Simulated assay, not measured.
Amino acid sequence: MGCHLHNLIDAVRQKELMCADSISDDEFFEMVRVFNNIAPQSICFDMGDIDKFPDIAPVYELVKEPFPDCWFELNFTNIDGGQVVLGMLVVVRDQAQIIVFRKIRKQWMLRGAIFADTLSSWQRYEIIPTSDIFAEELREYKIALSTFLSALNCNNVERVEHTPETKLQKARQKKEKQPLFSHWTLELSIPRSSQENQILNGIHARPRVHLRRGHPRQYKPGKWTWVQPCVVGTGKGIVTKDYAANFVSTEK
């Protein structure tokens, strides 16, 4: 997909950035101020298509910024079939700040921000705006980012840099446009596990065939690896898995 941060910087400079209605003017100008100061030197990561994210939960012990100032970008398909670009500027100083932008049909909009003591804070954080609709949207983006950072900090993940072409950079420079950013993607090196062929004893011997979800595994203190989703088991029968959450009303 590439990186659209240069495009957003141009939109902000030309005052073409829209803002969610529930964000106050003071909040908007402060977020834009931080963006203008931090975005040009941020390290960019392309997270790909959110619809293709693996069905895993974040491991918050692994959720930490790779650099103090980062831009994380992903895309997804809107309900009307249009392509949406989602960008998150992550700034970590005395606290962690995530400023969220969305681009639909060439129009950028500031969606809000998340503030926490650290990126690994998953229970205590503040969301602006507090509107239920926007707050829920930002929570989902925070989970997607946390999932990506969980994988990023596994030991068998390689960061691959993609650098813009020199001719294209020179052409943009002549037109006095913002230079294109190089960006990073991840490549997972996943060896075949010999553990799947081990003979199990006791009541766990010859488990029925079942799907094992992809997940990070800590194999020694501070060392994590990524275990790929796979079908395991040699016994008779098959087990399927599903996950659901039940919400019980406390109103009387």
Rank of each mutant, 00 (worst) to 15 (best):
L8V: 05
L8C: 09
I9K: 11
D10S: 14
R13C: 06
E16F: 03
D21L: 03
S22D: 07
S22E: 07
I23A: 04
D26R: 06
E27Q: 08
E27M: 04
F28N: 08
F29V: 00
E30R: 03
E30K: 03
V34F: 02
F35Y: 09
N37S: 09
I38K: 12
Q41R: 10
S42G: 02
M47D: 01
D49N: 11
D49T: 02
D51R: 01
K52V: 00
K52M: 00
F53W: 05
D55P: 01
I56F: 03
Y60L: 06
V63L: 02
E65P: 00
P68H: 15
C70T: 12
W71S: 15
I79Q: 14
G82Q: 10
M88C: 09
V90Y: 05
V91F: 14
V92I: 07
A96Q: 02
Q97V: 02
Q97N: 07
I98G: 02
I99K: 03
I99M: 04
V100T: 09
F101Q: 06
R102P: 01
W108I: 10
G112F: 07
G112M: 08
F115Y: 15
D117G: 14
D117P: 00
L119A: 15
S120D: 05
S120A: 15
S121R: 13
S121Q: 13
Q123R: 15
Q123C: 12
R124L: 10
R124I: 08
Y125M: 06
E126Q: 14
E126Y: 14
I127W: 03
F134N: 06
F134W: 08
R139W: 08
K142D: 11
I143K: 12
A144T: 04
A151I: 08
L152Q: 05
L152A: 14
L152V: 01
N153A: 04
N153H: 12
C154D: 02
C154W: 01
N155C: 14
N156C: 06
V157F: 14
E158V: 08
V160Q: 09
P164H: 01
T166H: 05
K170C: 01
A171E: 06
K174Q: 06
K175G: 01
E176Y: 10
P179A: 05
L180M: 13
F181Q: 06
S182T: 05
S182Q: 01
T185C: 02
L186C: 15
E187I: 08
L188Y: 15
S189R: 12
I190Y: 05
S194E: 14
E196H: 10
Q198V: 09
I199L: 14
I199M: 12
L200P: 00
L200A: 14
N201D: 11
H204M: 10
H204D: 13
P207Y: 13
R208S: 11
H210M: 08
R212Y: 07
P216I: 04
P216L: 07
K220C: 10
G222N: 05
K223H: 14
K223F: 13
K223D: 13
W224R: 07
W226Q: 01
W226M: 02
Q228I: 02
P229S: 13
P229G: 06
C230E: 13
V232G: 11
G233R: 09
G235I: 08
I238E: 15
I238H: 15
I238P: 02
A244C: 04
A244G: 06
A245C: 05
A245I: 00
A245H: 06
F247R: 10
V248T: 04
V248W: 10
V248H: 13
T250F: 11
E251P: 00
K252S: 14
